[in-house]
């Protein structure tokens, strides 16, 4: 039944080679790594600069991170950037002054942070669950985001372009009369894209986190990358088989990108708080990927069960779509 599977693998590999997919992946790897190492880790913006106007020296024990200004106009100028926080201590009661970010939770956080700097001697009990210097934190964060983007978007497109090529040549129909299990046709593509994605994951992690840190997170990251890679490859296969041409596919891709992944990035990367995002499957995949880079296993067995079910369901859908495509008119 599986006779010829290796031939399908070899043929798919040649097709991927001719489609320049590996070149694109290599380009992405270089681009992401350059951005992370030469740009992102150097964006060292302080957390909410705090300025105080205190003409009567009311606050004598303020933190050294608070900058004194001489006039109320200076204070106004400083907090007008929409990011800094001002403390006006010219009257009996000190006031926190900010230009609102538009998100209440962020504004509250900025105000609380400024207040904490007014009385730095207060002690807080903090549970230390790991060590992460700021640069490593940034590296892990951006690497996980780039990897998610690469696997979700570029892998999806790469597989679709492969299927469109085969559709254009009409060879999918020939496989309908060959004595080979149709699943072999799907599994060979999944294997190649999974392997390619895992190699990409390994290189991206080691180049950007360093050999030791990268190696430590790889086992967990591999699991998340594997899940995402298989799900996106199956989704790409299904869409590419069902949609008649690449133009319509591009439109569908745009819709998917805008309405499916954008809310996930917004919810995870900003302080926007949407309760419904918990029902968004991509959000969980994104958070799973991100947590895996921080070695914070936040997912339980139900997450893996749902992923396994999703993979099985998508596989059956692709199998059905493929059978339908093979029976199409020439």
């Amino acid at each position: 039944m599986w006779r010829g599977f290796i031939s399908i693998l070899k043929k798919d590999f040649k097709l991927i080679l001719s489609s320049k997919f590996f070149l694109l992946a290599l380009g992405s790897l270089i681009l992401y790594s350059c951005y992370i190492n030469f740009v992102y880790v150097k964006l060292d913006q302080d957390i909410y600069p705090v300025y105080i106007y205190d003409p009567m020296n009311t606050h004598t024990r303020v933190s050294s991170e608070v900058t004194q200004v001489d006039t109320i106009e200076d204070l106004k100028e400083k907090y007008s950037d929409g990011y800094s926080v001002g403390i006006d201590a010219s009257s009996i009661e000190s006031e926190i002054v900010i230009v609102t970010s538009g998100i209440t939770s962020t504004d509250n956080f900025r105000a609380a942070y400024a207040l904490s700097l007014l009385s730095p001697e207060s002690s807080y009990t903090v549970e230390n669950i790991g060590q992460n210097d700021k640069e490593m934190k940034n590296r892990r964060e951006i690497t996980s985001e780039f990897l998610f983007f690469e696997l979700a978007a570029v892998g999806f497109l790469g597989l679709a372009s492969l299927i469109f090529k085969e559709k254009q040549m009409g060879v999918i129909r020939v496989h309908g009369i060959l004595p080979v299990n149709k699943s072999a046709f799907i599994i060979s593509k999944l294997c190649l894209f999974l392997l390619s994605d895992l190699v990409f994951t390994c290189l991206l992690s080691i180049i950007n986190l360093g050999l030791s840190a990268g190696w430590n997170v790889l086992p967990v990251v591999f699991i998340q990358a594997g899940i995402l890679s298989i799900i996106m490859a199956l989704a790409g296969l299904y869409c590419a088989i069902r949609v008649p041409d690449f133009k319509q596919f591009s439109l569908l891709y745009l819709v998917l990108a805008i309405f499916i992944t954008t809310p996930v990035f917004l919810a995870a990367q900003t302080n926007i708080n949407w309760n419904w995002i918990n029902y968004h499957p991509m959000y969980h995949l994104f958070m799973g990927m991100k947590n895996s880079y921080f070695s914070t296993p936040s997912v339980g067995s139900s997450y893996y069960l749902v992923c396994a079910l999703a993979i099985v369901l998508l596989f059956l859908l692709v199998h059905r779509a493929l059978t339908h495509e093979m029976a199409k008119e020439g």
Partner: peptide
Amino acid sequence: VLFEFPYLYTNLSALDNLNYFASFY
């Protein structure tokens, strides 16, 4: 089966195509 249109892998040679299809039998 000979289809109405010659469905072949256009990026591969005749030899590669035939070796590929032969591998299933």
